[in-house]
């Protein structure tokens, strides 16, 4: 046995390493090594001139991180603004896309439905197209004389100038109920270089357009995930609840959703993580404008490094963002574990 085994398995160790070598070398050189290099750069004041590993590059320790987190100033104000923007973005995108994806999956999954294939393709179509191309499409749709404002005009609403409007949605809402000027208590006090009034602005009108775009593009993908899960729900379970007299809402709430719970959590997790990555759309549609209300940490990191040539601080922002994403992942894992027990 052992001889046959060694004959069949002969040379496997060498072959194994040869087989994985390309992947290991490339991921090592272009992923692991760069992360280590960036970690070094985030501790320096390198400005892009020459190599960051020359002796002349000033070593600044954790100054870059401090300027983002503990020292009052413009860098921290920008960074906290980007965090605020991304928080509102996450708060809106994740629930809306999850609900929309689940709703679409439930409708498309109905048995008596004709031409399911067409509808599934239609809903999935935006997911496969290039994020840059789709951002350009939405730039035109939300333009001043674009389709959205034309639609709003039909029902008698004067549409905003979407990508020049930095007013926060919560501020607009407060304005309509009569709070025209910010309360002094909120303006005079604040946290981390932003006043409470600024923290509570809500997503700006410009950000809302980007939120609409992202919900529109990602719902299709998540719909497919829900659809796969729904098709694994045995029909008998649903029929049993029908016989027990459960209405449509009760069936959804107490039968269907508990049956596809793992997928619901998967979609929420993926949403929670991917919404912190938003970059392409911001780059193409707004570049952080107007009034920094569409600035996100990912774009701020790019802009700080490649436009302001503050590579050290840019790298530091990347690492803080990475940390946020790791914490989000761990948090989700932890919540999942609590639910199970």
């Amino acid at each position: 046995m052992s001889r046959k085994r060694s004959a069949v398995r002969g040379g496997e160790a060498v072959a194994g390493w040869l087989f994985v070598a390309p992947v290991v070398v490339i991921l090592g050189l272009f992923l692991l090594l760069p992360i280590l290099m960036a970690l070094w750069v985030s501790l320096t004041g390198w400005n892009g001139q020459g190599s960051p590993f020359r002796s002349g590059v000033p070593f600044v320790g954790t100054d870059n991180y401090a300027s983002l987190l503990t020292e009052d100033g413009l860098p921290r104000q920008d960074f906290m603004t980007s965090i605020r923007n991304n928080l509102y973005y996450v708060l809106l995108v994740v629930p809306i896309q999850t609900a929309l994806a689940l709703g679409l999956a439930l409708v498309v999954n109905q048995r008596m439905l004709k031409s399911k294939g067409f509808f599934r393709t239609a809903f999935y179509f935006p997911s496969v197209t290039s994020s840059v191309a789709i951002s350009v499409v939405f730039l035109f749709i939300f333009a001043n004389s674009g389709a959205v404002n034309a639609l709003l005009g039909m029902v008698g609403i004067q549409g905003p100038v979407w990508f020049n409007d930095s007013r926060g949605l919560i501020h607009i809402l407060l304005d309509t109920v009569g709070v025209n000027s910010p309360p002094r208590a909120l303006v005079d006090h604040g946290m981390l270089s932003l006043t409470w009034w600024d923290w509570l602005a809500g997503p700006s009108v410009a950000m809302s357009a980007i939120i609409a775009l992202v919900v529109w593009t990602t719902s299709g993908t998540f719909m497919l995930m829900f659809l796969a899960a729904l098709q694994n729900v045995p029909q008998q379970v649903e029929e049993a609840s029908l016989i027990d007299g459960a209405n449509r809402w009760q069936r959804l709430r107490f039968v269907t959703i508990p049956m596809i719970k793992p997928t619901v959590f998967l979609v929420l997790t993926l949403g929670l993580i991917s919404t912190w990555h938003v970059f392409d759309q911001i780059y193409v549609m707004s570049q952080g404008n107007p009034a920094k209300t569409t600035l996100t940490p990912a774009f701020l990191s790019y802009r700080t490094a490649f436009k302001d040539f503050e590579y050290g601080r840019g790298a530091a922002i990347s690492f803080v963002l990475f940390l946020i994403i790791v914490v989000m992942t761990l948090l989700q894992r932890w919540i999942l574990r609590e639910r199970k027990s």
Partner: peptide, 8 residues
């Protein structure tokens, strides 16, 4: 995540 790898 890919976006934190831009500078690296």
């Amino acid at each position: 995540p890919g976006v934190v790898l831009l500078i690296p």
